[in-house]
């Protein structure tokens, strides 16, 4: 506040010419990024919206301005496209189960590592974080071996306790579930680090006071940890939700969307439409996804944020 109040008098001492020069100096620093950002980010965002109301196809690649305006046709077609509806349902199931699973795994790991007196904490932290920094292609190589119906580790472990494991990725009843578990396995590490930072921000005397009042571990967790973690949990839910709504790489490398479109996601459907050359249609689908992401974020802020207000 004081900085705000003293600034005018400081600036008053600077000569007028210098001041005007300095007023625009900011843009000299901002310009390089802004130019790249305009061309490679903002222009595509606008172009996508424009494309979504045209019949642009791959054959119009060299002459993007010669396409026809088709209004909202692409959007209405989307919702009568069985594959799109299927991909939307798959994606919602993935988000609905995957986000809670990832958050629970991250919370468990963070609380386990934060509960004092743990040796090798750095080792655990690095281990849990390892999948986050690993290329999805390498992860796919590993997981396809793990889940192989005959030679895979998972089914051979199950066989030792007398269970015949299913063909995880090849059966429509287990394929999406396998992708969900794999995504949680891959991503919980980054949430764990965020939650660990939040946990370390909670004053320890709160727990001490609760212990003196006779509160058990579970009560301490419910009455102190959870409420104080709410901002971090909300943040984790929002960024994981945004990421998971864009599910794409996992099914691409694991199942190619199959079997029978059981792991086809919205992003994957868009990618396929792009591959078929249906650019306008793909752009419309991508905007539907965009709207869903904004809607989910707003919803999560409503549900999890500021409940006391």
């Amino acid at each position: 506040m004081t900085a705000l109040l003293t600034r005018p008098s400081q600036e008053g001492r600077v000569a007028p010419v210098r001041k005007r020069k300095r007023k625009w100096a900011g843009w000299a620093f901002a310009a390089p990024f802004t130019v790249l950002f305009l061309v490679f980010a903002l222009l595509p965002v606008v172009a996508s919206l424009v494309m979504s109301v045209t019949d642009m196809r791959a054959t119009d690649l060299r002459t993007p301005l010669s396409v026809n305006f088709v209004g909202l046709d692409n959007y209405t077609r989307l919702f009568s496209d069985d594959l799109f509806v299927r991909s939307a349902i798959n994606t919602l199931v993935f988000v609905g189960l995957g986000v809670p699973l990832t958050i629970v795994a991250a919370m468990a790991a963070a609380n386990g590592l934060n509960s004092g007196l743990i040796r090798f904490r750095a080792l655990f932290r690095v281990g849990f974080y390892l999948p986050v920094v690993t290329s999805i292609v390498a992860i796919a190589v590993i997981w396809r071996f793990l889940l192989d119906p005959e030679a895979g580790l998972v089914n051979n472990l199950l066989a030792q306790i007398g269970i015949t494991g299913p063909n995880w990725l090849g059966d429509t009843s287990t394929s999406l579930g396998s992708i969900i578990v794999m995504a949680a396995w891959r991503n919980f590490g980054s949430l764990m680090v965020i939650f660990l930072a939040a946990l370390q921000g909670i004053p320890t005397d709160l727990y001490e006071a609760a212990r003196l009042d006779g509160a058990g571990r579970w009560q301490q967790f419910r009455r102190i940890t959870l409420p104080l973690m709410r901002p971090a949990l909300l943040f984790g839910a929002v960024i994981t939700g945004i990421g998971y709504l864009q599910l794409f790489e996992e099914p691409l490398v694991m199942t190619q969307g199959g079997p029978l479109s059981s792991t086809l996601s919205v992003s994957y459907h868009i990618y396929n439409q792009f591959g078929f050359g249906n650019y306008g249609y793909a752009a419309a689908a991508s905007y539907v996804l965009f709207v869903a992401i904004v809607a989910l974020s707003v919803l999560q802020f409503r549900l999890l944020g500021n409940r006391d207000d």
Partner: peptide, 30 residues
């Protein structure tokens, strides 16, 4: 302090919410 600073920050920040698939096709065309 420069004109348009706040707007520029909001636009850049807003980009974090835009799914990759929105920019993917136009970027490829570009």
């Amino acid at each position: 302090d420069f004109p348009g600073r706040k707007a520029l920050f909001l636009v850049v920040l807003g980009m974090l919410m835009v799914p990759g698939m929105v920019t993917f096709v136009p970027q490829f065309v570009l």
